[in-house]
């Protein structure tokens, strides 16, 4: 769920843009350096960005009988690493604003912080932790994708709560209000995204091991 255009007060919109900017600039500098050293990676990064956009267009079933869309931040972070995702995710969010009117220009900083920074870093941290603790690829990917999805929506709830604190209980009460709408309802969808991401990665291990090795996800072609 993207924060819609005009939803945040001007000061909050500017503040979240300032907070997100160093991460996006760091990602952009890393990408510029990478492209300067290996010009051919530009095309792969284009493919990675387009893949990230398309991930959010997939329809996964939800418990209500309708369908929802995965955030794709978990899979993106595992495949392409958080600094690259900060830039690619911000570009994708800008495209979603200008092609679908989802999100917006004034809320780009806030959305980038939750979806292109907090989500991917949470995913990558969990992924590395589970792998370091001896967990296999499947639990690492499941937890990374699920928790990244949940972290994204929790961050969105905090952003909304800071903008619109509850008159009686302040920001904390507002976190509960927005969280119950945007984060708690997201738990089944986070599990759903985790399951889907596991299936996707298992499929990619089978059909595209060479790319996963190139991206550093697999060390050996037969790892599953």
């Amino acid at each position: 769920m993207h924060i819609a255009e005009g939803y945040l007060p001007p000061l909050h919109a500017v503040a979240w843009t300032v907070v997100a900017a160093p991460f996006v600039v760091h990602g952009a500098r890393a990408v510029v350096r990478q492209v300067r050293d290996e010009p051919e990676t530009k095309l792969l990064l284009g493919a990675a960005g387009a893949f990230s956009f398309v991930l959010s267009a997939l329809k996964i079933p939800s418990v209500t009988g309708s369908s929802s869309h995965p955030t794709g931040t978990g899979l993106g972070a595992v495949l392409f690493r958080p600094p690259v995702m900060a830039l690619l995710g911000t570009i994708v969010l800008m495209f979603q604003a200008l092609l679908l009117a989802h999100g917006g220009i004034t809320t780009l900083g806030a959305n980038a912080f939750s979806m292109a920074i907090v989500g991917p870093w949470m995913a990558y941290g969990v992924y590395r932790l589970v792998k370091r603790l001896g967990g296999g690829l499947t639990p690492a990917v499941f937890l990374a994708a699920s928790l990244a999805d949940l972290a994204t929506y929790c961050m969105t709830s905090v952003q909304l709560a800071l903008a619109y604190p509850d008159p009686a209980s302040g920001v904390l009460g507002s976190v509960v209000k927005f969280g119950s709408i945007f984060a708690i309802t997201q738990i089944p969808l986070a599990v759903s995204e985790g399951l889907l991401t596991v299936l996707i990665v298992r499929l990619l291990v089978k059909v595209s091991p060479a790319e996963l090795i190139r991206l550093g996800v697999l060390r050996r072609p037969v790892e599953a």
């Binding site: 952009a28 990408v31 510029v32 492209v35 300067r36 530009k42 095309l43 990064l45 284009g46 493919a47 960005g49 387009a50 893949f51 956009f53 398309v54 267009a57 830039l87 690619l88 570009i91 994708v92 800008m94 495209f95």
Partner: peptide, 19 residues
């Protein structure tokens, strides 16, 4: 940076094919 606008343009051109 040119590299960023070029990657964004590539994403734009590729995503319709992927969709």
């Amino acid at each position: 940076p040119a590299a960023v606008t070029e990657i964004a343009s590539l994403i734009y051109r590729l995503l319709f094919l992927l969709l």
